[in-house]
């Protein structure tokens, strides 16, 4: 019962670690997902193939395996970075595949004629995508992107297994100190709830603000 108040700083440290992982990995996932979605609808065949392979590989690899590959594999090729950065890379790349597909489904909701009209006016592929198609696709991808980022927040727990400071990992310390495992996990769960409910709230707001009016 007193595990939270006794070890508040440990909890806060873990909480902040999870928040950091979530925020940075989300940003990476959004940027990469956006890029890959553009690739997948590009007029150039090799870009489409690259996007498709990116999604196929990352979406179909178990996240834990991906963590192993990045954290243990990359240093073998001479790339040595802090484990936290590796964790963000793994999480961000993994989630970008899902973001890409959510964006692409959004792009597919925009009638084909919108893009044709833009192209017939002489707009380039990039201009068409950025000023005509994506602003309309954006409205319909808010809910799925929200779900994907919530999944990312929870997936960040895997980083704890690779000695990155994050919320779930705090249980090990507390368990060794002899605290009740039940209460330890209750407070950890509450920490995750705070993060995921915040993401929900942000996306609910965005949906109200920009979502498709029906």
């Amino acid at each position: 019962m007193y595990v939270l108040t006794d070890n508040f700083s440990t909890y806060v440290e873990g909480f902040v670690g999870t928040v950091e992982l979530t925020v940075y990995a989300s940003l990476l996932a959004l940027v990469l997902g956006f890029l890959m979605a553009s690739f997948r609808v590009a007029p150039v065949g090799s870009f489409r193939v690259f996007g498709a392979v990116w999604v196929a590989v990352l979406r179909n690899t178990p996240l834990t395996l991906l963590f192993f590959a990045v954290l243990l594999g990359l240093p073998r090729f001479g790339l040595v970075l802090p484990f936290k950065v590796f964790a963000i890379l793994a999480l961000g790349c993994y989630t970008s595949a899902f973001i890409c597909e959510a964006l692409r489904s959004g792009i597919n909701t925009v009638p084909k004629g919108q893009g044709e009209a833009a192209r017939s006016l002489g707009m380039s592929f990039g201009q068409t995508l950025n000023s005509v198609v994506l602003p309309q696709a954006f409205r319909s991808v808010i809910p799925p992107v929200g779900s994907t980022l919530i999944a990312l927040a929870k997936n960040s727990a895997i980083a704890g297994a690779f000695s990155v400071t994050e919320l779930l990992g705090t249980y090990k310390t507390l368990n060794e100190l002899g605290y009740s495992i039940i209460w330890t996990f209750v407070w950890i769960a509450l920490g995750y709830l705070i993060i995921t409910l915040t993401i929900s709230a942000i996306f609910n707001y965005m949906e109200k603000r920009w979502g498709v009016a029906r």
């Binding site: 017939s120 002489g122 309309q136």
Partner: peptide, 25 residues
Amino acid sequence: AEGKALAKLRAEVGMVFQSFNLFAH
């Protein structure tokens, strides 16, 4: 073929569609 040159040429050719295709947003 596809690319900048095509975009440039399309700018010289106005097109009106059956379904209007005005930018909805």
